[in-house]
């Protein structure tokens, strides 16, 4: 059943957000700390668990993959809802502060990556389904 997968996804997100809020409260921060990341970990764990197999295989998996494939369209809608005017009208200070921070961090990506374990480049995107990441 497709809904089993969707429900598992929803349960992971709710549990993750709850954990993230609790973590924020515990740290005394007015923000959610890593809720989505915790939810992603839960989904990864759930999809390798034997007990939850019926929720992550066959049709149920389709319910999760559908939302994975909807991810880019959702991001396009998100882009259309950004306060771009504020970014442009914020003046030179806002522009420089944002741009300087972005640029420095971009430059650090290759440096920090080198410290970590070596990464293997993913195969060229043509060989996989761009929407789901599954081999075609």
């Amino acid at each position: 059943m497709v809904i089993y997968g969707v429900a598992l996804l929803a349960a992971c997100l709710l549990a993750g957000q709850y954990a993230g809020d609790l973590l924020g409260l515990w740290l005394g921060v007015q923000a959610n700390v890593g809720g989505v990341g915790i939810a992603m970990l839960l989904l990864v764990l759930a999809s390798s668990s034997r007990a939850l197999r019926p929720l992550v295989t066959d049709e149920a998996a389709g319910g999760i993959r559908f939302w994975g494939a909807m991810y880019i369209p959702i991001i396009v809608a998100m882009a259309a809802g950004q306060n771009v005017v504020a970014a442009v009208d914020g003046g030179l200070l806002a522009l420089l502060a944002g741009a300087f921070a972005t640029l420095t961090c971009f430059l650090l990506v290759p440096l920090l990556s080198r410290w970590g374990p070596p990464g293997t480049p993913l195969p060229p995107p043509e060989s996989v389904d761009s929407a789901t990441g599954a081999p075609r």
């Binding site: 996804l9 929803a10 992971c12 997100l13 993750g16 957000q17 809720g35 989505v36 939810a39 992603m40 970990l41 989904l43 990864v44 999809s47 992550v56 998996a61 999760i64 993959r65 939302w67 994975g68 909807m70 991810y71 959702i74 991001i75 998100m78 789901t132 990441g133 599954a134």
Partner: peptide
């Protein structure tokens, strides 16, 4: 929906 979509991309990771 953004968070829902992001979490779903972890499927298969």
């Amino acid at each position: 929906l953004r968070d829902f979509g992001i979490v779903s991309t972890a499927f298969g990771v």
